[in-house]
Computed example of a mutant assay.
Amino acid sequence: MAEDLTIVKEGTKEERYEALLPQIQGLLYGETNLIANLANIAAALKEGMNFFWVGFYQVDSEDELVLGPFQGPVACTRIKKGKGVCGASWQRDEVLIVPNVDEFPGHIACASASKSEIVIPIKKDGKTMCVLDVDSDILADFDEIDQKYLQKILDLLP
């Protein structure tokens, strides 16, 4: 049974992630269904970190991502490999931190309020299966701290 998240609204970004990590670990404990786990991660990050948009795009074919579990405003349903921040992260097989999405070549504006973004590929057996996409309505909102802790959270996936 899920418990309410203890939301830490004060402290540094790192302190808020540190408070959120064990809660997410508890949400994932014993659950092997990927969709359920991605949904709970998205909800916990949205609520716990107050991000504008948090979600996952799953690899649907060799050249397209499809929208998975997310929290926030409605989103683009399909993204081609190499297109936008998510498609570029998948194609390059690397984390992308974009301080100003309007300056990213080929950015796909699913929500005009989105200002900055971080995308992290998630691999299983050495192959990307989906990407975590986190958007902020604040410019330059993401940094190495976000990358470090978001990766720690993703490493909790069974």
Rank of each mutant, 00 (worst) to 15 (best):
G106H: 11
I122L: 12
L157M: 05
L154D: 04
A2M: 09
F142A: 07
K83I: 12
G55R: 03
V134D: 08
A19H: 10
P121V: 00
K46H: 15
W53K: 02
Q91F: 11
T77A: 13
L38K: 03
Q91C: 03
V119R: 05
A2Y: 08
V131A: 09
L34W: 13
I7G: 05
C86T: 10
E94K: 08
K123H: 15
V101Y: 07
P73S: 10
E3C: 02
A19Q: 13
A109W: 02
L154Y: 11
K81H: 03
A44H: 02
T128K: 12
I108Q: 01
Y149R: 01
N100A: 10
K46Y: 14
E47D: 07
P73E: 14
I153G: 00
I7N: 08
S114I: 00
A75R: 00
E117Y: 00
T12F: 11
I35H: 13
F52N: 08
K152M: 14
L65D: 11
T32I: 12
V8A: 08
A111V: 06
D155Y: 06
A109D: 12
G26Q: 11
I7M: 02
I118V: 07
D137A: 06
D102T: 11
Q147R: 14
A111H: 13
T6H: 12
A39F: 02
G84M: 01
Q58R: 14
A2F: 06
E144A: 15
L154W: 08
L5N: 04
A19R: 09
T6K: 14
I108P: 03
C110R: 03
L5K: 00
T128C: 06
L132K: 05
K124Q: 15
V8F: 08
